[in-house]
Simulated scan of single mutants.
Amino acid sequence: MTQPLGVILAGGLATRMGGGDKGLLPLGHGTIMDQVIDRLAPQVNGLAINANGDPERFAPFGLPVLPDSVGQHPGPLAGVLAGLDWAAGEGAEAVVTVAADTPFFPCDLVPRLQLAAGDMAHPLALAATPRGTEETRSMSRDGLIRHPTFGLWPVALREDLRTALTGGLRKVVLWTEPHGGREALFDDGGDPFFNVNTPEDLEEARRRLEAQA
């Protein structure tokens, strides 16, 4: 399987943080986005940021900024589609997406997603953790919790996704399941997909980063 491109999903509204871009919040010697880029860049063949509004706020990162092509903030699938359209122009076969507010996701995310997809004609896989890490996430029938912003997505299905979004589909698993989407299990302990939703989460992220130093 060829190396995919990486897309950082930064299109959320951040309502619990008072609005703005959570990825631009300070963390360590830079921002949350810096942490995300440092983790994802070694795993992919190129990076872009999916975000709406003025792209200049992301200029310091020197990465392409991809706006949603579907309006009304339809959720992460719109960011996935923006990434797939970009990847198609780059001649890539797949993208891996991560969330811009999740600074500690696994450094082997991409190979484990690829391993889960195996020999699928159109590799499609979501990250998952065992029950108990965050009960509010999308729970699958076998008790795993899907993390729908962390996935491997095939460029070959981008027009199918565009049609689904135009038709009103918003929930990630309602699109992945009919296409045989698989799950990559991350059961190494802790909460590898801890994300910053509140000021308290940001303080926790700072504590975690200091503990890793």
Rank of each mutant, 00 (worst) to 15 (best):
A116G: 03
P64E: 10
H29L: 11
M1N: 05
D68G: 05
F193R: 01
D21E: 14
L209S: 07
I32M: 03
P74W: 12
I145E: 15
G18S: 07
F105G: 02
L13Y: 01
F186L: 10
L144V: 02
A41P: 05
R208Y: 09
D85T: 13
E135F: 08
E90N: 08
M17R: 14
A213S: 15
E204I: 14
W175A: 03
L63P: 13
A92L: 04
P4H: 02
T198I: 00
E203T: 14
F58A: 08
G79T: 03
C107D: 15
N197Y: 13
T129W: 06
R141I: 12
G71M: 07
R112T: 02
R131M: 05
T102N: 02
M17K: 01
R112G: 01
E135V: 10
G151Q: 06
T31G: 10
L152G: 04
A205D: 03
P130W: 04
I37G: 08
E200N: 13
R162A: 15
L24M: 14
H73R: 13
L27A: 02
S138V: 10
A41V: 13
N195W: 14
F61L: 05
T15I: 12
L77W: 01
P148M: 12
A205S: 08
R170P: 05
F58E: 12
Q114L: 11
P103E: 06
S69R: 14
D160Q: 11
N50S: 15
G75A: 04
V172W: 01
N45L: 10
A99W: 11
